[in-house]
Design a protein around this nucleic acid. Structure first.
Lengths: 153, 153
DNA sequence: CTAAACACGGACTGAAGAAGTCGGATATCC
DNA sequence: GGATATCCGACTTCTTCAGTCCGTGTTTAG
């Protein structure tokens, strides 16, 4: 139904958490999970995936944990979602798939592919830092002044 | 994984088909299904749903079938998807849901809600007629001149 | 050295939704 | 009345998501 998975949600939550606590060297998966009521083991797997994708740095052993691999401003929500949920496409039969060549039904998919690119572009323009900022501003005065999604029309 | 269902695809395919054959009074679900290799009974249910939503007009009996209730230019892809897949939301926990109030994890959802609105806006700006046109143009000279999704950035 | 705390990673189970099927009822035209 | 349609609900099957379990490897504290 055109919604991203909870794993992606959890991943965004965790990264936002890390962006909001830049002073800490490393945060364990359990700490973040406990803060939000997320299953710890599940979040751990998500963070592992994000580490493999190069978005996080991990440190094993006691007092270990995760930290952002780059500045929060350099990590886009697109990368996070792509890392966790894999490449997403609006259309069920995307280019490269096998089933698509059989039927001529793909005539519809071309315009939808543009929609897909639009979504990707929007997500790429939103960084983890934007999420953290948005949180503060939203609580402060309703809707932030940041031109996050200024192309709402 | 952020993709719409096959039902929605089928629905769009069928509406595009109807838009491309405006001369015919009514087309049966079976005819459309056979043209694209879609399960007939499944497509029938989809068209019934679109009829209930007021996007199609149906006529039972022999030589019966479906026809567009309005001009193809007045039917947006948003309406079709919304009718078939229901209200879609990027975030797993949208406003109005119960589970959202429990955890403070919703801090992330606010900016994503804007993304959601952006997607909805794009889909609302694309009509069934656009799909039919796009099909012709795409085959002719690659990418149509229509400013369909001009806000790709 | 040892044990606790942490990251890693595969395998597994349950639940939910999607995709498609089946059977029957009703309406219309010939 | 029979053939062709829509209409509609219930049902099975399949896939994927969400979450858990368990074991391994690594680092640090004591």
């Amino acid at each position: 139904m055109l919604k991203l998975t909870k794993k992606a949600d959890y991943g965004l939550i965790a990264l936002k958490y890390l962006a909001e606590h830049p002073e800490t060297v490393a945060v364990s998966a359990k700490d973040i999970a406990d803060s939000y009521g997320i299953p710890a083991q599940l979040l751990a797997k998500i963070l592992q995936q994000l580490t493999k994708s190069g978005l996080l740095k991990s440190h094993a052993g006691m007092n270990g944990g995760y930290a952002l691999a780059r500045d929060a401003r350099e990590i886009s929500t697109y990368e996070v979602i792509h890392s966790i949920d894999g490449p997403f496409f609006i259309t069920s039969c995307t280019k490269g798939a096998k089933s698509c060549e059989l039927t001529p039904s793909c005539t519809i998919k071309e315009p939808l592919a543009r929609v897909n690119e639009t979504i990707a572009g929007v997500l790429k323009s939103i960084s983890i830092q934007d999420l953290a900022d948005e949180h503060d501003h939203a609580a402060a005065h309703g809707h932030g002044p940041s031109p996050l999604v200024s192309l709402t029309r």
